[in-house]
């Protein structure tokens, strides 16, 4: 990986982390799903995994002192985006398909935490936790759907243009 890509990944992590902190007063309302889908669309699978790992480590360090009960499910859940994008989604840039994916992801993200929270709090019953988590999942799913549906395409075009343009500029300047 070249220095420019590393810089772009670092800045992407900073953007995701900052917007999340700015929107922290609104539970589960954030642009993280949108931004990760956009970045996964323009970065390779390996770069996306590095981006998500960096973001999750930073977020867990800041919010929960690298608590494994948050870090592990968060990492697994966010990894699902690049994995799905490069497999079942077939690298699509269709915003409707991606918006529906973001909607489903809102629920999957919540479910991923359930076994870890049950272990952490010593809860044995799954059903009440599943029901209690539904409002948060609905908010995350709807926010993901709406933001991807309306903002994905312009952001993707912008990011793609930056990646392509900067590639040329960087190549010329180094030569």
């Amino acid at each position: 990986m070249d220095t420019k890509k590393m810089m772009m990944i670092s800045l992407s992590i900073a953007i995701i982390f900052t917007q999340e902190q700015l929107l922290v007063f609104l539970p589960n309302v954030q642009l993280t799903v949108l931004l990760i889908i956009v970045f996964v669309s323009v970065f390779s699978f390996k770069e996306s995994i590095i981006l998500i790992t960096g973001y999750v480590l930073l977020d867990s360090l800041y919010m929960g002192g690298l608590n494994p009960f948050y870090l592990v499910p968060m990492m697994l859940a966010w990894y699902l985006i690049p994995i799905s994008y490069h497999t079942i989604m077939r690298r699509t840039t269709n915003e409707v398909k991606l918006a529906l994916f973001a909607f489903v992801f809102g629920f999957v993200y919540g479910w991923m935490f359930i076994p870890f929270r049950m272990m952490q709090l010593g809860i044995n019953e799954l059903w009440p936790y599943l029901v209690a988590d539904i409002p948060f999942e609905i908010i995350m799913a709807t926010t993901g759907l709406l933001t991807v549906l309306w903002i994905y395409k312009p952001l993707y075009n912008l990011m793609n243009e930056i990646v392509l343009t900067k590639n040329l500029v960087a190549t010329k300047s180094y030569k």
């Binding site: 915003e95 609905i138 709807t142 709406l146 309306w150």
Partner: peptide, 22 residues
């Protein structure tokens, strides 16, 4: 048009879910 319909459906789903829960 498709995007508007999906958005409206999502907002109705959101509002309906919270009304049902309350």
């Amino acid at each position: 048009m498709k995007k508007v319909i999906i958005s409206v459906a999502a907002l109705v789903f959101l509002a309906g879910s919270f009304l049902a829960l309350s």
